[in-house]
Simulated assay, not measured.
Amino acid sequence: MSHLEGGPESDKRMLRREFLAMRNRLTTDDLRTAAVALAARALELPELAHARVVAAYVSVGTEPGTLALLDALRARGVRVLLPVLLPDNDLDWGAYAGQDSLSPVRHGGKTALLEPTGERLGPDAVTGADVVLLPGLAVDEHGMRLGRGGGSYDRVLARLADSGARPRLVVLLYDTEVVEHVPGEAHDRPVHAVVTPSGVRRFT
């Protein structure tokens, strides 16, 4: 996908529309197959094999499915932290205790998110993670991630940097979402790796 003319933010908006349109064409079978393959690839990551605490998220809609991965990590004895969206778009965190511990929460007119129902651990809980699994819409060959534009994970990444925490940052995507270029801004931080249904790519 070629670089688009205009400022980074307008470029990002156009790219988001394109990638969301591609996801909306996926069938239920496509989503199920991709989720199984994604979990298998992610579980092969050495970083996850040695992790004690992983900050992750529950996929919604046509996002690459994460529930199988969350359950597999929990079965390994990993402490999995899941986000809780706050009114200012920052993220609090709660521990994952299985799919029965999730509850749909609607924030405004947006799609309902599945959030953990247990104790709130505070926004700084993410700084204790060994690995942070990030949602996104695309990543480029330099590890720059295209998010949805809400800014929640920009805050998470800034919090990690400010605290001195150095978890491995991994984005979960479909194969077609690894592209040549994503428009970047000064506050954007590259990820260390991307996992797709067909494999893993690392960035230096």
Rank of each mutant, 00 (worst) to 15 (best):
P104W: 02
P135R: 02
L48Y: 05
G6W: 10
H192I: 12
V170G: 00
S198F: 03
P197Y: 04
L81G: 04
T27C: 11
G6P: 08
A161G: 12
R17F: 06
A49Y: 05
R52W: 13
S152R: 11
V84F: 06
R155D: 03
V53A: 08
D92Q: 10
D11R: 15
P190L: 10
V182S: 07
L81I: 05
A186Y: 13
L67Y: 02
V179L: 13
R120T: 05
V60H: 06
F203S: 09
P87C: 12
F19K: 09
A165Q: 08
G108D: 09
Q99T: 11
F203K: 03
K110T: 13
R52P: 10
A138E: 08
E177H: 04
G136M: 05
K12D: 06
F19M: 13
R201G: 02
R159F: 05
L134P: 00
T111P: 07
D71W: 00
V132E: 08
P116M: 04
E47I: 03
Y57A: 00
P135C: 04
V195G: 00
E63M: 09
R155K: 12
F19S: 10
A193Y: 02
E5L: 15
G118A: 02
L43E: 06
D130G: 06
S2W: 15
V54W: 05
L38N: 03
P167H: 08
R159G: 05
P190M: 07
D130E: 12
S59T: 01
L45V: 02
R32E: 15
S103A: 12
Y153P: 01
G61A: 12
L86M: 14
A55T: 04
E63N: 11
A34V: 03
G6E: 00
A37S: 13
A39D: 04
P64R: 00
K110E: 14
E185P: 08
F19D: 11
A55M: 03
A34P: 05
R106Y: 05
G128P: 10
A97H: 11
L20R: 11
V156E: 02
T28D: 15
L121P: 04
H142I: 03
Y96I: 01
E63V: 08
V36Q: 14
P116W: 01
K110R: 13
T176E: 13
L4R: 14
T111I: 13
L4Q: 14
D29Y: 12
E44F: 04
G109Y: 02
K110M: 14
G98T: 08
D88K: 15
L91N: 05
G150N: 07
P64E: 00
T127A: 11
A37F: 07
Y153S: 01
P83T: 03
S163K: 11
S152Q: 06
L45R: 01
A72T: 04
S59K: 00
D88W: 08
G164H: 11
H181Q: 15
H181L: 14
Q99I: 08
D29S: 15
H3M: 15
R166G: 14
Y174A: 06
P183F: 06
D130R: 10
P104T: 10
G128I: 09
V131L: 04
V78R: 06
L102Y: 02
L146T: 01
P104G: 13
P8W: 12
P183H: 06
A125I: 09
P83I: 01
L114H: 09
A39H: 03
V132C: 02
L38K: 02
Q99L: 09
G164N: 13
V36G: 07
A34T: 02
A129W: 07
T127E: 04
G122Q: 10
